[in-house]
Each structure stands twice: as C-alpha cells, then as structure tokens.
Design a protein around this nucleic acid. Structure first.
Ligand code: ATP
Length: 632
DNA sequence: GAGGCGTGGATTTTT
DNA sequence: TCCACGCCTC
C-alpha cells in the first residue's frame, strides 16, 4: 500500500458503504482489492472470516489469495472466503441444499450432458420435437419464450432434481432460491459477511448481482471494481449496466496505469477508442520506454508458431526472463495445438547442452477432462457418490461391456419411465423380457455399485480408484480396444494421471474431489511440479492476468472478430476482447497472424483482423517475415 | 450383443 | 482432419 496513489489509498481504506471503483486496465484495481483485505484484517481488526471476496476465475482467486497470504500469513488468508461465485455457491449449497430437497452429494452436469438429457426428455415434455436440435432445446429451457418452453424447462428441472444434479447456472439460481425461500439461512450469511467485494464486476450477471445484493443487505458494505471496456462475457449473461448503474455512496476512478509501457498503452487506446458508447476513461502512464509493440505476418500457421517460439527463446536469453513471463494468447482453444507442437519440438540450449522442448502450460486446458477414459472414471465416481446421477450411470452402464445392449437398455429405461422409478431401482427389478446376458450384466453392475460405494467410503481415495480400475479390468479393456500400442499407452497414462490427481488433490473425500474436478478442473500441474512454464491461454481466460511478454496470435478476420460474432452483432465485445488481450502485456508485446490457416484440414487464405487497421502504423514496429532458420 | 467400417458434420468465448 | 453415430455383418 506504501506505493499507492491517493485514489488507490482512498479505495483500499474506505471500508464502509457501497463503493464503486471504475478504472481502466492495469490501473491497480485488483491490487486495491488485495490491500483492502489486508487493511481490514490488519488495521481494522476485522476477522478474516467476515470477508467475502469474489473473483471471476479460480486462477484469479488463487492469485489473490497468495498475494494476501504474503502479507497476512497463510493461516489468516485461508480464513477469507475468496473464490468465484460458482465455487462460493457450490460450497454453500453443500451445507444448505437439503432445505430445498436435494442431497449434499449433488452432481454437477456439464452443458453437454444437459443437452443430451434434454434430447432424452424432450419427447415426453413436448407435443412435438421434430426439427428441434439439442441447441434449440437448450435455448428453450434456458430462456423460455413460450408455454411449451416453460413446460420443457419445468420437466428438465424436475428431472434434474430426481438426478440430484445441478448445472453451472443452477449453482447460482438454486442459491438464490434458497435465499428467497429460507430467510433464516440467508440471514446467517448476511450476518457473517460484513465486507463483500467483487472483482471484474463488469462481467457479473443478473443473478450474481442479486446474490451480492442479498448478502450485502444487512451490513451494506459492498465494494465492486471493474472496467466497462473489459466486459467480454455478455454471451454468458453478463450485463454491463450492472456496473454502470451500480448505486454507490462513493465512486473512485483510477487513471494511472502501472502495468504497461507507453507503446503498449497507445495501441490499446487506439483500439478501444473505436467503440461507440464508451464512458471515456483516461489512462496515463509515467513509464518511459521508447519500444513499440511488434507486428509480423507469417505465411502459414506453422510459420507463425515457429516464429513465436524463436522469439521467446531470443527474448528470454536477452532479457533474462523466466518461462512463466511469457504468454501466448489466442481467440479459441483449438489454436493452442499448433503452438504446443512447436514448443514441444523446439531445441534450446540449457547450459552447454541442447535440450528438446520448452516447458509450457495450457491454462484452463480441459483436454484431460475431455478424454473418454477420464470421463468414464469420473462417471463411476459420480455414480458411487450420487447414485441418482443417471447421466453418469448411463455413460458407463455398459462400459466395459457387460452385456447390456442398447436394446436391453431401451427396455430398462422404458420400464423405468412407465413405473416412475429410479434407474437403479429398475436395475434391481428387471423387466422379464430382457435377455439372460443383460440380466446377468445388470446384476453384476448393481453388485459393483454396492461394492464401490463401500470401497470409496472405507479406503483412501487413490486406493479406491485403483480398486475400481482393477475391478472393471480397465487396462485389459483399453488394450483390447486399442490395437495401436501407442494409443493404448497414451490412454493408460491418462488413467494413471487421474489416480495421481486424486493422490495429490489433498483430499480423501470423494465429494470434495469431484467438486474440484468439475468446478476447478483440477490439474496435476496445479498440485505441484514445475511452475516455470510458458503460459498458453485464450484472450478470455487472460482477463485479470499480466505477463512481461505477450504474443497475441492468429489475429485474422473470422478469428478476431470471430466469424460467429458477426451474426450475433457483438463486434464491440470482440473489440473489447482485443483491448483486454493487449493490456495484459507489461513490457513486450508482439502481434501476429498467418496468411494461411488450416480449416477442417484444408489450408485456407486469411485476411488480417479488421482491428489491426485501427492501429496507426507509427505505433507499431512492423517486422518483415524472415523464414526462421531453424537449427533442427 | 459386439465390433468394424463409412459418412457427414464440427469449432467461439467459461463457470 | 477428426470424431460421433448409424448401419452392417459376424
Ligand atoms: N501504486 C502502484 N504503484 C506501482 N505499481 C502498481 C501500483 N498499483 C498497482 N501496481 C501494479 O500494476 C499492475 C496492475 O495492477 P492490477 O493487476 O491490480 O490492475 P487491474 O486494474 O486489476 O488490471 P486489470 O483491469 O487489467 O485486471 C500490477 O503489476 C501491480 O502490481
């Protein structure tokens, strides 16, 4: 706090009332939040468990906690409730959801799973379903516009309740319902959280707003910080008006940027200026640095990736940076692939040896959890924990094969539906028409569930998972399925990585572990291992972070602005996204694009992002493209 | 009931 | 390019 300017100081020490900090990128908003936590505890003697600080991503929450811990010590820092809205609601519901008739062991359904479920129930919920895609059904249930839509929505929520399951939106919605219907529950939390603060407030949605208002109602101390120019989650329901119209007792603006060089700030301003309807914020910097951001145009996507990697090697050497000072940013997750390949193949000097590969981390990478073998294991765990989770059950009811064919399954679910039973009940009382193979399979499956539940209750988590893998003969099953040994090895490694994840997750509680997997996308790198890695992430997930050197890649029309944004009419949001990305860089910023990129396997010519034309030429150092002479 | 093969559709962004 | 799903045969 010593280095804070007067406005920051004011914000960090104004503890009472409703305070809005509205300020541009890199002006120290998050720093203020951190110092405010410290000030409350150290100077005002507020108990850390009276503080609720909500962030947008788990990564941001983690980062904030470690910054607070540096000053307050780990013990006090851990007592602060510091998480995303979703994690906060999840933990709260674990304790309180019984009021609403769910069990604490509730599952969390992914969007995909919800869509699939909608397809299954639609014929029973609607008059006619032909011509309705699963996306259309999803839209109907989420934002009902007619009686029919309402019917589908109700049917879905009844089904979800029967499955004892929530989706991501439900975590917030159900918490709000709880607060509305059980005032005595709300009052406990209102009482407890005397100071509430929210980061990235420009990206909160209506429900988050209502939750915050309800929680802050008693003490009235609500502190929100944000930047309307960085609102990039409208597609998820965030509403910029919530910050612009936030009723406040005090408004504080921060105008000094401490993060970036003047050259970086200049292009950020040129880009965002082109948006109409802005609430003109000024950003100054006191830094002196004559360097300009760079721009290069590569012939192909592969050339672009190679060039980025070479630049990283060169810059690291020249400026003595760590790997983790570098970030490669891109619009969509799939683009990470190309850079991963080049990072893996890069040769570099370490001391006087040549080594292959640059350490990197794909931030928020969900690839691991997308793997079928991992999803299967998770489904087993979910089923043991919450036997009503029929999405999980249906996924693995015949995997590995146990004789329950699609035909048999149809008979089972038909009976289930006509008798209004739980799936497990039907599996215990099978229809006679089933083949004997299916009957035997179902009986074995029921035994497995019972044994599994017992095992997971009594044994340490990793042991129990090993038991599961052994019992279902997963290794043999994978070997048989994958004639290609390499593929088998790869999948088996993922299975083992999952066991490792459980071992290092720091919990033996199945529910807690599952929560971590679903909400946090726990990663083995999170749990330890080498931290110093080049960071690969989307423009979206870079929000709130900063890096010494940033590479903004794939800056092509159709990618940025994304072609889909054209139909949606969200060009302004795409421009804000570019602004967010630019302002992540502290010292070195390189923009790049490729003239040809593969689309569905075929090379296709590209055009430069239209946003590049918003930057005056004199603000950039435009590099001719030298085909990188690799020493491979 | 299992497994192999061929076709057509897919990719935005996240908790 | 890849994967999911449907159709076919054993
Ligand atoms: N008063 C200050 N003096 C020097 N450096 C500061 C000061 N305040 C903040 N900083 C530094 O400026 C950088 C940006 O701060 P911070 O991340 O808090 O900004 P922010 O407003 O939250 O940014 P964004 O909106 O982009 O998330 C950080 O590296 C921080 O340490």
């Amino acid at each position: 706090m010593r280095r804070f300017n007067p406005q920051q100081l004011e914000a960090a020490t104004a503890t009472e009332g409703r305070i809005l900090v509205l300020a541009g990128a890199g002006s120290g908003k998050t720093s203020v939040l951190v110092e405010r936590c410290i000030h409350l505890v150290e100077t005002c003697n507020i108990s850390p468990d009276a503080i609720l600080a909500l962030t947008f991503t788990n990564k941001a929450a983690g980062e904030m906690r470690s910054r607070v811990a540096r000053k307050l010590g780990k013990e006090k820092a851990e007592k602060i409730t510091l998480s995303t809205f979703h994690s906060f609601c999840y933990s709260l519901l674990k304790n309180e959801i019984h009021h609403l008739g769910y069990a604490a062991s509730f599952s969390i359904y992914q969007e995909r799973e919800l869509k699939r479920l909608l397809e299954q129930i639609a014929p029973y919920a609607l008059e006619k379903t032909e011509g309705l895609s699963k996306d259309a059904l999803y839209e109907m249930a989420k934002r009902p516009k007619s009686r029919e839509d309402e019917k589908l929505k109700r049917f879905l929520s009844e089904t979800m309740k029967a499955h004892n399951a929530l989706d991501f939106d439900d975590l917030l919605e159900v918490t709000l319902q709880l607060f509305e219907n059980f005032p005595h529950v709300l009052s406990v939390y209102q009482q407890r959280y005397r100071y509430i603060m929210i980061d990235e407030y420009q990206d909160t949605n209506r429900i988050q707003y209502e939750l915050a208002e309800k929680l802050a109602h008693r003490h009235g101390n609500l502190f929100v910080v944000g930047d309307d120019d960085q609102s990039i989650y409208a597609f998820r329901g965030s509403d910029i008006r919530l910050i612009l119209e936030f009723p406040h007792t005090s408004l504080i603006k921060l105008e000094q940027n401490y993060r970036s060089t003047p050259g970086i700030l200049a292009i950020a301003n040129h880009v965002i200026e082109k948006n109409p309807n802005r609430h003109g914020k000024t950003l100054r910097t006191a830094q002196i640095d004559p360097n300009l951001p760079h721009l290069f145009v590569a012939p192909t996507e592969e050339d672009e990736a190679k060039a980025v990697v070479l630049r990283i090697l060169k810059l690291k050497e020249e400026k003595c940076l760590d790997w983790s000072d570098f970030a490669i940013l891109y619009r969509s997750n799939t683009l990470a692939r190309i850079f991963e390949v080049e990072l893996l193949n890069a040769h570099r000097k370490e001391g006087d040896r040549f080594v292959r590969g640059i350490p990197y981390e794909v931030v928020q990478g969900t690839e691991f959890y997308e793997r079928a073998e991992v999803k299967d294991l998770l489904a087993y765990l979910r089923m043991f924990h919450n036997p009503c989770d029929e999405t999980a059950i249906l996924r693995i009811i015949n995997y590995p094969r146990r004789g329950i064919s699609p035909d048999a399954l149809k008979k089972i679910t038909e009976r289930q539906r006509s008798h209004h039973e739980r799936l497990l009940h039907t599996l215990r009382h099978l229809p006679d028409s089933l083949s004997s193979a299916a009957k035997a399979g179902a009986a074995g499956f029921i035994r497995l569930i019972e044994e599994g539940q017992n095992t997971f209750k009594t044994r340490p988590l990793a042991d129990a998972i090993r038991w599961l893998i052994h019992t279902i003969e997963l290794q043999e099953c994978l070997r048989q399925e994958n004639k290609d040994d390499k593929m088998f090895q790869f999948k088996w490694q993922n299975v083992q990585a999952f066991v490792e994840l459980a071992k290092t997750s720091g919990t033996n509680d199945l529910g807690e572990f599952l929560g971590g997997c679903m909400l946090d996308r726990l990663h083995k790198q999170n749990a330890g291992g080498e931290r110093d890695r080049v960071q690969l992430l989307t423009f979206h997930s870079a929000k709130g972070l900063e890096f010494s050197a940033c590479f903004l890649t794939c800056l092509e029309d159709e990618l940025l602005p994304h072609e889909k944004s054209r139909e949606e009419g969200t060009l302004e949001e795409e421009r804000r996204l570019f602004y967010v990305a630019i302002t992540r860089a502290k010292r070195y910023l390189t923009l790049s694009m490729a003239q040809k990129r593969k689309k569905y396997g075929a090379m296709k010519a590209t055009n430069p992002s239209r946003f590049l034309f918003d930057i005056p030429k004199h603000c950039l150092e435009i590099e001719p493209f030298d085909r990188p002479h690799t020493f491979l």
